[in-house]
Design a protein around this nucleic acid. Sequence first.
DNA 1: GCGACAG
DNA 2: ATCTTGTCGC
Length: 235
Amino acid sequence: MQRFPNSQIHSWDLTPEQAIDLQMQLREQVRIVDDFAQPLQTVAGVDAAFEDDGATTRAAIVTLNFPALQPSEKTLVRRPTTFPYIPGLLSFREIPAVLAALEQLQHLPDMLLCDGMGIMHPRRFGIAAHLGILTDLPTIGVGKSYLCGKHAPVPDEQGAWVPVFDKGEQIGAVVRTRAGTKPLYISPGHRVSIATAVDVVLRCTTKYRLPETTRYADQLSKDKANNGGLQLPLG
DNA sequence: GCGACAG
DNA sequence: ATCTTGTCGC
């Protein structure tokens, strides 16, 4: 019953210094090339929220069929928060709860879209990359604000995007998912190329700034009225 | 040394 | 992330 063998490769009881050392080590395993089931049949949104003044982490996952984007399954779990929020170390705060939520899914999604960065990170190991290595699932980082890298201004038209560079290499793209709103910072996490990451995010976006995956996961993670995290039929 | 800093 | 009402602008 060990769904993600790799999720045991390291402890979560770490100091910020140890967490950084771990990122430097695990980044070697990240693969930024398209290596996933095609055609894509399901995509899932991953999100975390906090309650009890931050003492409790709530992780939500909503799977949507692709490309129709209709919800097919969802899970919500609560776990004690064990790591502070430190820019660059977000994954150590949110992933433990996310893994627990993934374990409860009846069916594994073909791809995960996470809140935050993939390789568009100071050490190329944002939450989407970390989650990808631990689960060996294809992942994409969907950031709502800037973390690092340089890029030209993004044209204000739906679908426009410009590459983001850091230290001589492209680490992702800034994407205008909707005109008149702030762009999204897209980067691969694992087993996906930069171009495909941008393409998938745009295909998951309809009339709003955020892709449907993120919207559904956000809604679930913030939903106060729920059955304690039990899976519920959608409709 | 100074500025920046996902959720 | 979270605390929070109405409000300005497309």
